[in-house]
């Protein structure tokens, strides 16, 4: 791995941490908090590709595990990682990897549609699959029940998919990083 790749990996881990500093927005009616932090894995995968994107989130999680309060709301440490929403946190790394894999596949003909589908698949379908499975085990409920419980969060994630798609396409025009290495 080249020095530049290590720097990019560190950069997106840091970016994910900084996104956690933005105050969460509370959605009307449902009262579900939406944090900007989960944009981090989407952007890491969509901009750096599978390997570097996935590793940048792994690196971010290592720092959280070391005891640094980098998750949104100043949380961190093992407690929050093994908690009820732990699956969503660990899932970020896989989510970033899957997004990266799909974006790399579509890279030469990337457009709004396939970019959005890639990010939504990795960032919602894959992430919720892992996160909900974790919740189902922790709460001793069925997978279906966990999925219903997580549904209100989809609104926020749909917004984030839209933002990540637009950002990924804009960055691709001025700073393409995937074609160079993949």
């Amino acid at each position: 791995m080249k020095t530049k790749d290590i720097v990019y990996i560190a950069l997106f881990a840091a970016l994910t941490a900084v996104l956690g500093l933005f105050p969460p927005i509370t959605l009307p009616i449902t009262g579900v908090p939406v944090t900007a932090q989960s944009l981090g894995p989407m952007l890491a995968g969509a901009i750096l590709g599978a390997r570097r994107g996935g590793l940048s989130i792994v690196l971010f999680l290592v720092l959280v595990a070391l005891g640094l309060p980098l998750l949104s709301g100043g949380r961190g440490g093992f407690g929050v990682m093994v908690g009820v929403t732990g699956g969503f946190i660990f899932g970020w790394a896989i989510s970033a990897f899957v997004i990266g894999l799909l974006i790399e596949k579509f890279w030469n003909r990337l457009n709004v549609v396939n970019a959005a589908v890639s990010i939504a698949f990795g960032g919602i379908v894959v992430l919720y699959a892992i996160g909900n499975a974790w919740v189902a085990v922790a709460a001793d409920i069925s997978y279906w029940q966990a999925t219903v419980g997580a549904a209100p969060f989809l609104i926020g994630d749909a917004i984030k998919v839209a933002i990540a798609t637009a950002a990924c396409l804009a960055v691709r025009r001025s700073y393409p990083l995937i074609s160079k290495s993949a």
Partner: peptide, 14 residues
């Protein structure tokens, strides 16, 4: 190195 760089980058990015 990567871990140190993340800690170095966070204040810069902020």
């Amino acid at each position: 190195l990567a871990i140190s760089m993340v800690l170095r980058f966070i204040p810069v990015i902020a």
